[in-house]
Design a binder for these strands. Structure first.
Lengths: 78, 78, 78, 78
DNA sequence: ATTACCAATCTGCCAC
DNA sequence: GTGGCAGATTGGTAAT
C-alpha cells in the first residue's frame, strides 16, 4: 500500500530522526563537560554566561555592558 | 450524553481558558510598556536584563557578578 | 543625582514589575486549577492539548487532524 | 598572568564551545531537511508532530490518543 | 518519594 | 521569508 510519496516522506522523517539522535548525543557530551567542571569546583551556571558572552562580538559585548551600567546607575543598582 | 464527569472536566477547562485570557491581556500590557520605552529611546533587551537583576536578592546578585568577573579574567575577557 | 531621564526609566521598570507580578499570580492560579484537575484524576498534559485544540478554529483543527492522519498512514503508524 | 586553574577553566570552556558548534551544525542540517520537505509539499509542523509521536512507545502513544479522544468527546470537540 | 523550582529546548511571533 | 526573540513546555535537580 505504500506508494512512492509515502516512501519519500518516510525517508525524510528517518533522516530527521538520525540527525536528532546525533544532536542529542552531543547535548549529552556537553552535559558531561559541565559535570566535569562542576566536579572541579566551577559554577556551571556562570560558565554558561561566559559561553554566551564569548559568542558575542567583543565590541557588541562591551557596548551592551556599558548600556547596562548606565541603566543600573539610573536605577540605583549597586 | 454529557454526564457529570464531562461537566466537571469542561468547567476546569473553561476556568483555565479564562485565566489564560487574563494572562495574555497582562502580557500585552507588558509589551505596550516596552514599546513605550522603546519610543522614548530605551533598549528593551537591556531593560529585561535589569528586571531580571532586580528580581535577585542584592547579595546574591553581587556574589554572582563577582564570580562572573573572576571567570572573565581567567578567560581574558576585557 | 537622579535626573528626569532616570526617573522615567525607573517608572517604566516599576510598571513592568507590577504587571509581571500580576502575570505570575495568574500563572499560579492556572497551576492550581491543573493540580485540582489532577486530584480529580484528570491528566494535565492532555488537558493542555485540549486547551490548545480549542484555541484553533474548528475548520483549521479538522484540516490539521486530517493531514496528520494521512502522514500517520504513510508512516504506518497505527 | 594565567595560572593553571585559569587554563583548566579555559580548556573546559573551549571544549564546550566546540561541541556547541557541532550541535548547531546538526541543528542546521535538520532545518535543511525540513526545508527540503517543505519544497516537496509537506507540512513541516505536522512532520514535527509525527517525529514526536514516533519517539513514544506504541502502547503509550495509543493510550495517550485514547485519553485525548475521551476528553474531546467530553468537551464536544468534533 | 514527592514536589517545587530551575534551566534548556522547542514552538510561535514579530521585525527586518 | 528568514532570523532572532520571547514565551511555553518539558525534563532534571535539589530539597524536604
Amino acid at each position: 500500500m505504500a506508494d512512492a510519496a509515502d516512501d519519500r516522506l518516510r525517508l525524510l522523517i528517518e533522516r530527521i530522526e538520525r540527525l536528532e539522535e546525533e544532536k542529542k548525543g552531543i547535548g549529552d557530551d556537553i552535559k558531561d563537560v559541565y559535570n566535569e567542571a562542576k566536579s572541579a569546583g566551577y559554577d556551571a551556571k556562570i560558565m554558561r554566561q561566559i559561553v554566551r558572552l564569548r559568542k558575542m562580538k567583543p565590541d557588541d559585548r562591551r557596548e551592551m555592558e556599558a548600556v547596562l551600567d548606565v541603566y543600573k546607575n539610573a536605577l540605583g543598582i549597586d
